[in-house]
C-alpha cells in the first residue's frame, strides 16, 4: 500500500467520524470544533488531489474566518441543545433506516468502479506546477461571467441581510454632528424686548402677575 493511500484513508476516516460527531455532540461548541476538524481533513483530501490552492483557501476562509465567527455566534446565543434535540433519539431509528437505505442505494449504483481509488489522483503534476496560476488564468477570462454572477449573489446577500436586520428604533437619541455644528446662537436663545419694570403700587403688581 502506497503512503498516499494510507493518508487518504486516515483523512477520510477522520472526516466521517468528525462529521458524525458534529450532529451527535451534546455541546454546540464541541460540534463547531468537530466541524473545524472535518474541514481540516477535507482540505487534506484536496491536498492529495494536488489542489493545494483550494486546500489552503478552505483552511484560511472556512477554518480561519467562518468557523471562528460561527463559534462566537454559538457561544453568544447560548443555545439549549437539549431542547433543540428533543426527539432526536426517538427519531433516530427511522433516520438511520432512511439514511442507510439512501447511502446503500447510492453505493450500489456507484460502487468503487467510477469514483474509486484507481481514479485518484488522475495524473501527477510536476512539483513546480502552480494551481493558483491556473485558477487565476481562467477565473477572470473564461469564467468571468460566472464570477460576475457570483459577485451579484454576494451583493444580494448583503442587501437581504441589511433589509432583514437593520432596525432603526424610533425612540433612540442620536447625535447629529452636522446639526450641532451648524447651530447658531439665535436658534438656542431668544431675545425678547420687554418694557422696563417700574415699581408700582401693590394691587397693580398683583394684576400684572395674574395676566
Amino acid at each position: 500500500m502506497e503512503f498516499k493511500t494510507i493518508l487518504f484513508y486516515v483523512f477520510s476516516t477522520v472526516t466521517v467520524v468528525a462529521a458524525l460527531r458534529v450532529i451527535t455532540a451534546r455541546n454546540p461548541v464541541h460540534a463547531a470544533l468537530f466541524l473545524v476538524l472535518a474541514f481540516f481533513n477535507v482540505a487534506g483530501l484536496w491536498m492529495l488531489l494536488q489542489a493545494e490552492f483550494l486546500a489552503l483557501a478552505l483552511i484560511m476562509v472556512y477554518v480561519g474566518a467562518v468557523m471562528v465567527l460561527f463559534l462566537f455566534v454559538v457561544m453568544m446565543l447560548d443555545i439549549n441543545i437539549e431542547r433543540v434535540r428533543a426527539g432526536f433519539w426517538s427519531n433516530l431509528p427511522l433516520g438511520i433506516l432512511v439514511g442507510g437505505l439512501l447511502a446503500a442505494e447510492m453505493a450500489a449504483v456507484l460502487t468503487g468502479r467510477y469514483f474509486g481509488l484507481a481514479n485518484l489522483p488522475p495524473h501527477d503534476l510536476p512539483a513546480n506546477h502552480s494551481n493558483t496560476k491556473e485558477l487565476a488564468r481562467v477565473l477572470y477570462t473564461d469564467y468571468a461571467y460566472p464570477l460576475e454572477i457570483a459577485s451579484v449573489i454576494l451583493l444580494v446577500a448583503i442587501i437581504v441581510a441589511v433589509t432583514l436586520t437593520l432596525r432603526r428604533r424610533k425612540d433612540t437619541k442620536t447625535m447629529q454632528a452636522s446639526a450641532q455644528i451648524a447651530v447658531k446662537a439665535k436658534d438656542r436663545m431668544r431675545l425678547v424686548k420687554m418694557a422696563s419694570e417700574v415699581e408700582e403700587s401693590a394691587p397693580a403688581a398683583k394684576q400684572g402677575e395674574q395676566a
Partner: peptide, 9 residues
C-alpha cells in the same frame, strides 16, 4: 441561486 436568494429575501 441569484433568483432564489432574492425571492427568499
Amino acid at each position: 441561486e441569484l433568483m432564489s436568494l432574492s425571492l427568499y429575501g
